[in-house]
């Protein structure tokens, strides 16, 4: 299933945040969104996920969702958004409980996603007992449990240290390689974008526009941190972003 943004603009009060965004996230691919801070990339993601309504323009779903899909547009949040009073398993079950499923089906889904994210041994743990990386794995397991048509990932690795981030990137590549999913991946980290994105959309500073979409053809599983081709792409992304980032940094938040 594709997700298509058509001429979407968004404003908070009088402040324009997004301006005339035209974008397609194609099925089975990861589209990364990068841009200077405050450029509206997270807002764009919330629009795509239906958590906010665009001031003008439209967001459309194209095609049928995968079979067994329980929640078409599924978020992975920067700060995990785990229920602190529920165990790892409880957090996954929380998003399944309101669906018509038999207990056997539920147990099977939970066991499957915990196994895929390496959490099988932690089903009973509380979120506070887990490291940041493990917490985000729980959030990813929860997102996979509803068999999403599109994963909307809002800086999912930004709250983690660089070593954990590297490990989780490999996990995400592994998950995608075994079962390709559609994702829109917001990040400000260009290294993440070139490792995980089949395409990288570069946004301008506020009000955010799509400046350019850079395709990366190297298969995900063959990308290495020191790949010269990826470094070249990353340098190019930075050259697109640098001046915007400097200007964005000097802006007053309330405009």
């Amino acid at each position: 299933m594709d997700i298509r943004v058509r001429h979407a603009s968004h404003a908070y009060g009088g402040l324009a945040v997004l301006s005339d965004i035209d974008l397609v996230a194609p099925a089975g691919k990861i589209l990364c969104l990068v841009g200077p801070s405050g450029c509206g990339k997270s807002t764009l993601l919330r629009l795509m996920g239906g958590l906010e309504r665009p001031t003008s323009g439209a967001i459309e779903l194209v095609g049928a969702p995968p079979s067994g899909c329980l929640n078409e547009l599924t978020f992975v949040f920067q700060h995990f958004a785990l229920l602190p009073w529920a165990s790892v398993e409880g957090n996954v079950r929380f998003v399944l409980d309101h669906h018509r499923l038999s207990e056997a089906e539920r147990a099977e889904i939970v066991a499957d996603v915990l196994a895929r994210t390496g959490l099988a041994d932690f089903a009973e743990a509380w979120p506070r007992q887990l490291s940041g990386g493990m917490r985000q794995r729980v959030a990813i397991a929860r997102a996979l449990a509803v068999r999403p048509a599109v994963l909307l990932m809002d800086e999912p690795l930004s709250a983690l240290d660089s070593q954990t981030r590297e490990i989780l990137m490999e996990d995400l590549v592994g998950l995608w390689t075994r079962a390709p999913f559609t994702a829109v991946y917001v990040t400000h980290n260009l290294a993440e974008a070139v490792r995980l994105g089949h395409a990288v959309a570069v946004m301008s500073r506020r009000p955010g526009r799509i400046r350019e979409i850079v395709a990366i053809d190297t298969p995900l599983s063959e990308r290495r941190p020191d790949d010269p081709e990826l470094e070249r792409v990353q340098a190019r992304l930075w050259s697109l972003l640098r001046d915007e980032a400097i200007d964005a940094d000097r802006e007053l938040v309330d405009g």
């Binding site: 239906g50 929640n71 547009l73 958004a81 998003v95 309101h98 929860r142």
Partner: peptide
């Protein structure tokens, strides 16, 4: 953030 999360998973209001 937790309420947004629950909404994003389509959890009904009462729940």
């Amino acid at each position: 953030g937790l309420i947004r999360m629950a909404q994003s998973f389509g959890v009904p209001w009462l729940r």
